[in-house]
């Protein structure tokens, strides 16, 4: 089993070519597949510490964005408040169960659960422990990654605000600023997270 335990050896997930990764400790940037150019590995310094800090920041910003008013509309003196969650609630209440669930899952459930999952995994790993069910949690985290769509919701907010700008005054609430910061923090988090490093730490075949 020497070949399958060599952590440097990897098969490209897009073209199956076997290759070995360059030494990772001092490197920066990314390693790409020699044949098809797929990104095999992104190097990141102090991955666990940085990701932990960013995930904590992200959780705080997530709570702030959801608890405070997000947008308000002032149309001839009448003010309509809305929070981040109200778009999925409204869709749900008006009988669009599928749309409501989809918006709820992609803008609340998946982003929140992946932040919590990262904290659940990294906090014990930082302290040198391996949390319970860690492998299942990390598999869940990896498989739901494309379904967190907060950055797309941000673009949608800009589109909606410009669209309404003609007929009414749109007021950005405090949650909007927290939300904009959250998008940046999440982008930095996904850049600093090193899945290969975490998998190596969680590997039941090795004893750390």
């Amino acid at each position: 089993m020497t070949i399958s335990c060599n952590p440097k050896l990897i098969a490209c997930h897009d073209c199956d070519l076997l290759q070995s990764l360059p030494d990772g400790e001092q490197r920066r940037g990314k390693a790409c597949c020699a044949r098809c150019g797929a990104v095999l590995h992104r190097y990141s310094r102090d991955s666990i510490d940085r990701s932990l800090a960013l995930a904590l920041t992200g959780l705080v910003l997530f709570l702030v964005s959801n608890l405070l008013p997000f947008l308000a509309l002032n149309a001839q003196g009448r003010i309509q408040d809305s929070s981040l969650l109200s778009s999925s609630l409204i869709l749900w209440q008006e009988g669009n169960t599928f749309l409501g669930m989809l918006v709820f899952a992609t803008t609340f459930l998946f982003p929140l659960s992946s932040l919590l999952a990262i904290l659940y995994l990294l906090l014990p790993l930082r302290l040198g422990q391996r949390p319970r069910f860690s492998i299942h949690v990390f598999r869940y985290l990896q498989s739901t990654e494309p379904w967190g769509m907060l950055e797309i919701f941000m673009l949608a907010t800009l589109v909606a605000v410009v669209k309404l700008g003609d007929i009414a005054t749109v007021i950005a609430g405090p949650a909007m600023y927290a939300f904009a910061l959250l998008i940046l923090v999440l982008a930095a988090l996904s850049a600093s997270l090193d899945p290969q490093l975490i998998w190596r730490r969680l590997d039941p075949r090795c004893n750390h």
Binding site: L71, A72, L73, Q80, S82, S86, S87, S88, L89, I90, L91, E94, L99, L102, V103, T106, T107, P146, M149, I152, F153, L155, A156, T157, V159, A160, K163, L164, V170
Partner: peptide, 17 residues
């Protein structure tokens, strides 16, 4: 995934208006 923009816009507009 970016095609979801329109769905979110509808949700935001429905919540505000």
């Amino acid at each position: 995934r970016w095609s979801m923009v329109d769905i979110f816009v509808i949700g935001i507009l429905a919540a505000l208006v």
